[in-house]
Design a protein around this nucleic acid. Structure first.
Length: 261
DNA sequence: CCTAATGTTTGTGC
DNA sequence: AGCACAAACATTAG
């Protein structure tokens, strides 16, 4: 589930911990700790005070008051972050629990496709995030145009590429292209400046609206609201939606609103 | 049993 | 080099 809007929601959840001192860390499944063992992870963070959480694309960072170390969290396809009372029922998929005086932050993830990193300094932060493109919400229309231009790949695969823009995912890309009336298989090279700007504007709207509710809403007026229906139709023109695979991912588009060229 | 799932990485081949 | 495609990771739901 987690794309930029979901992770922005997790960032707001993590604000509960800002200014608070860590009392303990429970690592229930060491598999989600990437590049560090539980003992070292706990030792490095013992007694730390957490600062303001920040986000870049689909990465969430929890800095300590001294700026470093920071905990970097990625949520894969099934991860989430919850703020719970200290005595709340444990959940089967709580992999790491950060304890504070008045509550706990739980990293919950079923599939464990990604996980948590400990970032000890500037260099490690750069190593982790250095290849990422600009955050898809921060990037201007000019950024979108510059980063989409001049490749022969499909616009869907370019928008999904975190090195082009950070934060878009399968749902937000389909929604954005549907609103921009651009066929997902079109090549970025054949897009006009005007079309790329339209993509940027629509992406901003989709991301802003979704971030408000920390998910891509399944409102009937949105394309995404019809994904799970047995016989989905375009909420704008009523045509049957086509379902296919582009860039390895299930892709919905409206053949009438999003013509091939 | 089989398939698919909102992500990322790695390998193969054109 | 650039790109498409498939598989892998781990788990559950239908």
């Amino acid at each position: 589930m987690p794309e930029l809007p979901d992770v922005e929601g997790f960032r707001r959840v993590a604000e509960h911990a800002a200014g608070q001192q860590l009392t303990d860390i429970e690592v229930h499944d060491s598999q989600v700790l990437r590049g560090i063992r539980p003992q070292q992870f706990r030792k490095s963070l013992r007694g730390a005070e957490f600062g303001e959480p920040w986000r870049r694309g689909k990465w969430l960072l929890l800095p300590t008051a001294a700026e470093f170390p920071q905990v970097a969290l990625h949520f894969g396809m099934t991860g989430s972050l919850l703020w719970c009372a200290r005595d709340a029922e444990p959940h089967k998929h709580d992999r790491v629990v950060f304890g504070f005086a008045d509550g706990q932050l739980r990293y919950r993830d079923m599939r464990k496709l990604t996980g948590l990193h400990l970032v000890r300094g500037r260099a490690e932060l750069d190593e982790l995030l250095g290849e990422l493109g600009p955050d898809a919400l921060d990037a201007s229309a000019a950024d979108y145009r510059a980063r989409l231009a001049g490749s022969r790949r499909s616009v869907k695969s370019a928008l999904m590429d975190q090195e082009v823009l950070a934060g878009l995912g399968n749902l937000t890309v389909d929604e954005t292209l549907w609103r921009a009336r651009i066929h997902p298989a079109r090549t970025t090279a054949e897009l006009s400046e005007h079309e790329m700007s339209r993509i940027a504007r629509r992406a901003h709207t989709v991301l802003r609206e979704s971030a408000k509710v920390a998910r891509v809403p399944d409102r009937p007026s949105w394309l995404t609201g019809h994904r799970d229906e047995p016989d989905p139709h375009c909420p704008r023109c009523g045509s049957a939606l086509s379902r296919g695979k582009i860039a390895g991912r299930t892709t919905y588009h409206c053949p009438r609103c999003q013509p091939d060229r």
